[in-house]
């Protein structure tokens, strides 16, 4: 499932830190637009490198990027000790 929100929490002994609910769906929209804008250049690069190099495998970037983003939901990273705390959660 495509994550819609990212929860970010950073806290340290020196500062109060901050907590944030970020609507990552906005980033996905910008990222999607960027991928579309880059498509002609990637096609060109694929053509140029088709003799020797990655060639049309470069076009795999699109489905692979989509697959990673789509499956990012549920990722949870949390570290905590006496001095600091970091939490990143995609939901």
């Amino acid at each position: 499932m495509l994550p819609i929100f990212m929860r970010l929490k950073v806290r340290s002994a020196e500062s109060r830190g901050f907590g944030l609910w970020f609507p990552v769906i906005l980033i996905w929209i910008i990222f999607g637009a960027l991928l579309i804008a880059l498509l002609p250049f990637i096609l060109l690069a694929a053509l140029i490198t088709s003799w020797r190099g990655p060639g049309f495998a470069l076009l795999l970037v699109y489905p692979l990027a989509f697959s990673v983003l789509w499956n990012l939901g549920g990722l949870h990273v949390e570290t905590k000790n006496a001095r600091s705390e970091v939490l990143i959660d995609f939901s």
Binding site: P54, A57, L58, L60, V61, L64, S67, V68, W70, N71, L72, G73, G74, L75, H76, V77, E78, T79, K80, N81, A82
Partner: peptide, 22 residues
């Protein structure tokens, strides 16, 4: 006193592995 808690979706691991093709 480090505490770490990481949860990675299996599908994300599989999707990440596919990048190896590039």
């Amino acid at each position: 006193g480090d505490k770490v808690n990481i949860r990675v979706p299996m599908k994300l691991i599989r999707a990440g592995l596919k990048w190896a093709a590039l």
